[in-house]
Nucleic acid binder design. Structure first.
Lengths: 223, 223
DNA sequence: GAGGTGATTTTGATTAATCAAAATAATGAT
DNA sequence: ATCATTATTTTGATTAATCAAAATCACCTC
């Protein structure tokens, strides 16, 4: 089975799924993969076995799946297309950062190398997309730098938002309204375990309080 | 059967195929459709029957196929996407007119309405693509204006190239090298039935002779 | 009008991708 | 250790799209 957009999606979700897991040499459980791809569990199993045949993933029955080197490389080129396209749509086409994900989801499978080169060039060979996600290199090198979240970073220290790891438009608009987009300066004033909340002071000295769940999706550069 | 890119391609090729036929109320023979889509004849038959079920085409066994109003409208939106994308790739992305067809062929199936609106706006609501092909309106109205070809237009009269009806890169580069792109002024100096050739005088008073086959692909505005 | 040629349709299979539901394995709690 | 729960895999079917090759039809020529 060659290299359909279905295959690209499986590899992409396996990559993203694994990278969301705690460090180590983790395997992505089939259940999570099936949810991410919105397919029935059995479908994911069947497909992953086929991908294993093609040498794109390692599959351990009942344990999960992980990418091989070849699979990682392919996933990286898909991610590169996706993220360059997202940035292009924002930067060149003037679309909002909360409305580009779905288009990118489709375009990532059809953009030719030639067109992608043009896009990359036009954007000045950027290394992150509008959400702060790293754009893999042409040869499939992904530079995932280590970042704290607003849940783990030091309190009372100014930090810079570097990445927002949730593409939900509602969340993205909230982030934008409150000056929490990548590049913005914020500071954690306090954390309240009990209330499951984090109080921030951002641009304009206005304090806002966000839930822990939201705080964990905002990655920051502690400097 | 809903509205896959396969369906879009069938409708598009039926539209294009019919419009290449002599006027009247013609039916596109299944053979031609199969060739255009690069599928086996039986495949085209099966698919067309399904399209007829969906009310997108009229199918007369052994005679051929033609679009219904609904089918025409859908074909028009595909053509609109294709042609706007082609113009975009040339105008905005700086690609050559002879290298945009294949990208457009894929992009036409995935570009969202929102993105297409942006493209349309950015290009100033153009009405022809780089090859002079008309860009259907948002509601599916196609303005096919009547044009002569270099085989049928008056001799010794200046005419303006309006449209090039062949996407082959080799041909397009020939056209460009010889100043025969849409917008350029030319004049048929003579036609030679026997030699199957047409002598032209174009920009810079240089005379060139092209074959009848090529001449028939260059549509001109006699004014 | 009888054949033959070429186009078209049928038939029978195949492949990729999917689902629902049954079967099985792993896990954790008693 | 046993059992119940939950995750995973199997099984059996389905759908869209395709092909090759056999059957059929249309049409032209003699």
């Amino acid at each position: 089975m060659a290299h359909s957009s279905t295959v690209e999606n499986y590899l992409k979700e396996i990559y993203l799924g694994v990278s969301r897991l705690p460090p180590g040499e983790p395997l992505l459980p089939m259940g999570q993969l099936a949810v991410a791809l919105r397919v029935a569990p059995g479908t994911a199993t069947t497909m992953v076995k086929a991908l294993a045949e093609s040498g794109l993933v390692e599959y351990e029955p009942y344990n999960g799946v992980r990418l091989t080197a070849a699979g990682t490389k392919l996933a990286a080129t898909v991610l590169r297309r996706h993220r360059l396209v997202e940035l292009f749509l924002v930067q060149v086409m003037g679309m909002r950062w909360d409305e580009v994900h779905d288009d990118a989801e489709h375009l990532e499978h059809v953009v030719s190398d030639r067109l992608l080169d043009r896009i990359d060039e036009m954007l000045g060979h950027p290394d992150t997309d509008p959400h702060g996600d790293p754009i893999p290199g042409k040869e499939g090198t992904i530079l995932e730098r280590h970042l704290e979240t607003l849940l783990t970073c030091p309190v009372g220290t100014p930090v810079v938002v570097a990445r927002v790891t949730d593409q939900d438009p509602v969340f993205l608009r909230f982030v934008e309204r409150n000056g929490l987009k990548p590049g913005e300066l914020v500071e954690v004033e306090a954390r309240d375990e009990g209330a499951d909340a984090v109080r921030l002071r951002g641009r304009g000295d206005t304090s806002i309080t966000i839930g822990a769940r939201a705080a964990s999706k905002l990655l920051v550069d502690v400097k």
